[in-house]
Design a protein around this nucleic acid. Structure first.
Lengths: 261, 261
DNA sequence: AACGATAGCTTATGGCATAAGGAGTTCGCA
DNA sequence: TGCGAACTCCTTATGCCATAAGCTATCGTT
């Protein structure tokens, strides 16, 4: 629980984010720097990957580098700015230009799949707000990659803005659900059973109060013989279903535009 | 930055969440309780509303009630559980059964609008994960309300699960964007200009590196004479555009089903 | 050789959640 | 009427956290 919103001074973060790689060439007096911003960002990402956001402390990062927490402040103004840098750096795993695919729909699908995998590798990224004041090059590249595909639809920018928003929010939101479910399931096995047992005990009238919710959870594909799916498969199937709906919406817009022309 | 994921002991939170109102009837020895769980939850919501998640501390909540932080621990096991209760209680503002509307689309639209307003009134709710282990009656009621509308489409549960996910994630994600932009704009006037100036200075080659992103931001509705919109209107328009895409996707599914029948 | 800039240290401050234990309050029951 | 048990709320202490301040050792420059 904390300020996901107001990160560090945007101006400071931004200049660090967009600084060319070999900016500091001139030799200076004093001891050689034993660390670098890059190293610290790297270490921060490792810590966040393994210990999650809650475990990300300046000390933890420093310890991974064999320093005390205060050593980091020589390189980085503070934790908030470090997080800004980590966030953007992590996105460097993605966002390269991609081979053209046949049509926008497969293109979007593979972009979505890649982004989802990325979020599941680095769930802490999802705790950093999507709409921050700071903006980094790698994050921007991810958007640009998506636009590469989306602009081929010929849809107007107004509509595309909405499409971009729905795709990003959908992937982010769903990835968070998956990540947290996985965490809960890992922490405690037989998690679903535990949870529904809890609910039965504490709210025996649940089925009467929320019949549609129960129905939503129970009903499976008409064809299925009632097989119990693992929560992974269930979630994946739901993810795909929702994505299909969104993309069908895009397709409708594309078709409508074709007619209008 | 902290554990939005793992809240308190789910079992404890759940029993508090689903406890009937007048549970404690029997008189007990000891001084009369000066507080109650309800009062504390109420106070917590006030604190979070005004001071946001970052300002939500046990002390702040207790001070609002004229107590020390430790007094709260008599009623509530800890901060994590308090947050679970706050989250669900806040949702009580919503979720009542609603008058039937003509068709599912207006129904969903008004549900979305109401939920969006709610999130903007209580942005801290968005910092609490949507997919938590605990589940409260009021949050559940919000889902049930949506399902009331969605099941009239006759779509199978598989698809509806996806629709529910895309709607929830879209509204949550977008509301967060709006809330944070509003916060930034309030903190610092002329925020957009400041921000783009910063970008120009630090990344003068932005337009060449990310041409499509620039195009996405610049192009406005074909009809418009290039009027500068306020960010509020711009965001609202984008929100509506994305929502339209999603609902068009639902409509496509409904139509396809009608044909298949 | 001496100077001044710098890296990374120790220490201190003020915030946080919350464990531990103590003091006063009010009930049921003798 | 009075005692003990149960209860509320407090003070205090512990151990986290970020980070301000200042110190020391290092090293390029003069």
């Amino acid at each position: 629980m904390s300020n996901l919103a107001g990160q560090g001074d945007p101006a400071v973060s931004m200049s660090l984010l967009w600084a060319p790689a070999g900016d500091r060439a001139t030799a200076t007096p004093g001891p050689k720097p034993g660390l670098s911003v890059d190293l610290i960002v790297e270490a921060g990402i490792s810590v966040a990957d393994t210990a999650s956001m809650a475990g990300l402390s300046m000390r933890a990062v420093a310890e991974r580098l064999g320093r005390t927490s205060m050593a980091l402040y020589t390189y980085v103004p503070g934790k908030a700015e470090l997080l800004d840098l980590m966030y953007d750096r992590a996105h460097a795993e993605l966002g390269g230009p991609r081979p053209p695919e046949d049509g926008w729909r497969p293109g979007v699908l593979s972009w979505v799949a890649e982004l989802k995998e990325f979020y599941l590798r680095h769930p802490w990224v999802l705790q950093v707000s999507y709409a921050r004041a700071v903006l980094g090059p790698n994050e921007q590249a991810v958007l640009e990659t998506l636009l590469d595909v989306l602009f081929t639809t010929g849809l107007p920018a107004d509509v595309l803005r909405g499409v971009v928003g729905s795709l990003f929010h959908y992937v982010r939101g769903f990835a968070q659900t998956i990540a947290e479910t996985a965490l809960a399931a890992a922490t405690q096995e037989d998690w679903w059973r535990e949870r529904s047992g809890m609910l039965d005990e504490v709210a025996p009238d649940f089925a009467e109060r929320f019949p549609l919710s129960v129905r939503l959870g129970r009903e499976t594909a008409a064809g299925g013989g009632g097989r119990e799916w693992s929560w992974e498969r269930q979630l994946d199937a739901t993810f795909d279903a929702g994505l299909t709906v969104i993309l069908d919406g895009v397709e409708a817009a594309v078709r409508a535009q074709g007619v209008r022309r």
